[in-house]
Amino acid sequence: MRLTCPSCGSRGLEEFTYRGDASVRRPAADASEQAWVDYVYLRDNPCGRHQELWYHGAGCRSWLVVTRDTRTHEIFDVRNARDVALTERQTDAGQGEIA
């Protein structure tokens, strides 16, 4: 398998390590224990498109959000995790203002 790192281009799988589901979000410190148990321990195991975190540890050390088909290993999208997280914050902040 190969991943196209936004910084480094197409690279072999051996440069990356897998972390897991990129759709879970760290709860607030005062969130319920159930929310924290879900975040720390529970993961879906979807068949098909999956957003997941990968680390380009043997390259630029970027954490990446990879959209992958778990059946075919087709890679649809690779983005810098930091960009994804920052965009989400801006969106959240924007929604906050509207509310």
Binding site: R19, Y55, G57, R61, S62, W63, A81, R82, A85, R89
Partner: peptide, 18 residues
């Protein structure tokens, strides 16, 4: 040493990019 480095990068890039 290696694991903590990846952990710091993760926390910074993904949890607290601000």
């Amino acid at each position: 040493a290696g694991g903590v480095m990846a952990h710091l990068e993760f926390c910074h890039q993904w949890l607290w990019p601000e």
